[in-house]
Computed example of a mutant assay.
Amino acid sequence: MLQINRENLKSSHQLVWFIIDFLMLGLLILNLAFIIWDSIYGFVAVQHLLQQHLPALQSAYHPIHERFIFYDLIFVSIFLTEFFVRWGYAIKTSIYDRWYFYPFIHWYDVVGCIPVGSLRFLRILRVISIVYRLHQYRIIDITSTRIYQFFNFYYEAFMEELSDRIVLKVLTGVQEEVRRGSPLFDHIQQDILYPRRGMLSDWISRRVAEAAQEGYVPNRGALRHYLENRVDHALKQNLELSRLKYLPVVGSTIQETLEGAVGDIVANVIHQILEDLASASNHAFIEDIVNVFLPTPEGVAADDTQNQALIELIIEIIDAIKGQVRVKHWRAQLP
């Protein structure tokens, strides 16, 4: 239910205008209800129905229906009076840059006052403008009402469905352009990716260093133990190395020494590689890899296989985006 924030209403410097807004809002709702009822009463079938079942109501209202324009002009005179008062206040306080801007900005107030059938219903725009102004000044909160939540839910659902279809159509068109080998692919490769090779190298270098520091450094001892065990197991499965233990006197010693040396060498190599990746010295290595994937446009002629791989990568990325776009978030809000 719509509630009025009385504290904001009392503390506002426009209390008089807000009271006028509430009065105009009540008169507009009454006038629109009167217009709708008179429009319904205008059907002959409705008049006959009332004459049969509610003759007193029909006989009392029929003279009002015949003089409807007169009663409507009473409302119009009140609305126009309020309009000119606000216009004069806008001129006095210089709300707008020119004195004649007010009727153009509030055109719906003027047009709605024209006592012509279809134009009368434009008065509902004035209702919307008053409600919006009261909401903007936090006198009322229309977002808490059920009718607002109802219409807002279906509006958001409609806009999501519409925007999703447009985005999917655009992304599908981009995929077709990439598959056909249009200038779009060359534009992505040469004008977008290539000029940013340095930025890509820096970003990948930092990400690799962070991943190595977070993943390897805390688990260095466990990884070394795992590598030594795996190397030891592999060496024991080696037939040629197992024959060394048959050498007289020194066979077992040589076998154990080789197993320990190989395990230590492998663990140290892996340790050094990960240490290098976890430090700033990995930048040159990452930069070389990026340069291989993004060669200079003036360099060697592009490899068809490499181009095809990049095309497939772009298409898969767009497919992933399309999959996310297809998710209907508004359905999750359904009870």
Rank of each mutant, 00 (worst) to 15 (best):
N5I: 09
R6S: 12
N8A: 14
L9V: 13
S11K: 12
Q14T: 14
Q14D: 15
Q14Y: 03
V16K: 01
I20E: 07
I29D: 04
I29P: 12
N31E: 10
D38W: 04
D38Y: 03
I40Y: 05
I40C: 03
H48W: 01
L50E: 01
H53M: 06
L54Q: 12
S59H: 09
A60I: 09
Y61K: 09
I64N: 04
H65K: 08
I74E: 04
S77T: 14
I78N: 05
T81S: 14
E82P: 04
F84G: 02
F84I: 13
V85N: 07
Y89C: 02
A90Q: 08
I91W: 01
S94D: 12
Y96M: 11
F101Q: 07
H106W: 10
C113L: 04
C113V: 01
V116G: 01
V116I: 13
R120W: 08
R123S: 09
H135S: 13
T143C: 05
S144D: 11
T145G: 06
Q149Y: 14
Y154P: 06
Y154I: 06
E156Q: 08
E156G: 00
E160A: 08
E161S: 13
L162Q: 14
R165M: 13
V167Y: 07
L168R: 12
V170C: 11
Q175E: 10
R179N: 04
H187D: 05
I188P: 00
D191W: 00
L193P: 00
Y194R: 04
S201L: 04
S205A: 05
R207S: 13
E210K: 05
E210M: 15
G215A: 10
R224W: 10
H225C: 02
Y226H: 09
R230E: 11
L235R: 00
L235G: 00
N238P: 00
N238L: 05
S242G: 06
R243C: 06
L244V: 02
K245W: 00
Y246A: 08
P248H: 05
V250M: 11
G251C: 05
G260M: 06
G260N: 08
G260W: 09
D264L: 15
I265S: 03
V266E: 02
A267M: 12
V269E: 07
V269L: 11
A278D: 04
S279C: 01
I286S: 04
V292E: 12
T296Y: 01
E298V: 11
V300A: 11
A320W: 10
K322P: 12
K322W: 03
G323Y: 15
Q324E: 11
R326C: 03
R326T: 09
R326P: 00
R331T: 07
